[in-house]
Design a protein around this nucleic acid. Structure first.
Lengths: 207, 207
DNA sequence: ATTTACGGAATGAATATTCATTCTGCCATT
DNA sequence: AATGGCAGAATGAATATTCATTCCGTAAAT
């Protein structure tokens, strides 16, 4: 039998595959993609190098597996059981809370996804996975603008980039030691981001 | 003789040194630090590898030279002839305009400074250079909060991280092709960022 | 003529990948 | 139940490649 596609997450093979992906994520996040050799990944996973190459054709394939796996986790953490098509302040708060939880529970994954240098490694498949998260968010913003909740000054993609960048910037500052983030700080940051995108025309909206 | 310190920027040696730094910046921005070998840098600069090593003791020394040079350029572009100690909306606009100009004129430098993986390479000297930009900005925010111009909900460092992250996020989105930024878009983004940090209650307090 | 700068092949260390061999668990046979 | 045999999983030393750095013959400058 072959492992062309993906094994079940619970099967023995799937478990070991997952183990390696998690180990790789950890080492990649710490040393960067070019900066980490393959043997240390195997060591971190507690398997032999040869074993790693049984599960992944190449370092590049491993990188893409880590990327897709982590991106999927982020997407699940953000979107599961959340109705993006009814934007509101509380939906925004919920999204912020989920994003925060992801960054806190999986700091290595969060950092990995923001690294610049994997973009030259990514396959079309991986790039496609990227869209699966961006598109729903874009639709949410569009609806929010239509209903008058959000300012329609900015194009949706710009609003998302602004918000996402701010969030990433805050956590990056913490990681680099420029900042420590209390829960209260995060709430204030959230409220500031909301002010940046909400519709300020006090015309009719806002119950 | 040795090149311990720095040659004059206009001397022959200074020119070639600069040439190599600019070439290195370009290749680093494209392939990352670990991802670029030294010979391609020499090729980009149009010099031999041996020549490069006449000017820089090691790849690490070159990286730090690129970092310090670029950071200095950013600092000059932002702070020269600007009175940070009198915050106002127009000062904010001026800062935004200068930041935008830097990102547009020197996209590789801007990207390089935001890369994650140079932090393991940087010498104490380089890290020190980082503070030279952050500290004045922090003071500006503190004064802005004291005078009631900026919201004092957030600690200064948080406000800076938020703003800086948003700016970086917007330009990163453009670089990755998720977005194209017209001058108008940049103005709208600027105004949104201002809303995130400005003081909203004109006189009364609402905690 | 002597010194200095230069280029790029040469060198050795580090790295990605392979492969011959050893384990491991499972099943058929007794 | 005990044994022998077997498929495929695991391993890490061996190989091929890439990289940072050095060395040396040549050109330019003085």
């Amino acid at each position: 039998m072959s492992l062309t596609a993906n094994a079940q997450p619970d099967s023995r093979e799937g478990r070991k595959r997952d183990l390696i992906i998690q180990a790789a994520l950890k080492v990649f996040a710490e040393h960067g993609l070019h900066g980490t050799a393959v043997p240390p990944i195997a060591a971190e996973a507690g398997v032999g190098v040869g074993t790693l190459y049984r599960y992944f054709d190449s370092k590049e394939a491993l990188i893409n597996a880590v990327f897709q796996d982590t991106k999927q986790q982020l997407q699940d953490a953000l979107l599961t059981d959340l109705d993006l098509m009814n934007p509101s302040r509380s939906l925004f708060d919920a999204l912020w809370a989920r994003l925060t939880r992801f960054a806190r529970n999986n700091p290595e994954g969060f950092q990995f996804l923001e690294m610049q240098d994997h973009h030259s490694y990514l396959t079309a498949d991986s790039r496609h996975r990227e869209q699966a998260l961006l598109i729903p968010l874009g639709m949410m913003v569009i609806i929010g603008q239509r209903t008058g909740l959000l300012s329609d000054d900015m194009k949706p993609d710009l609003a998302i980039a602004l918000f996402w960048g701010a969030f990433v910037g805050v956590f990056k500052a913490e990681r680099l030691g420029y900042l420590t983030l209390s829960d209260d700080d995060l709430k204030r940051a959230r409220d500031a981001c909301w002010l940046a995108i909400v519709n300020h025309d006090s015309k009719d909206k806002t119950p």
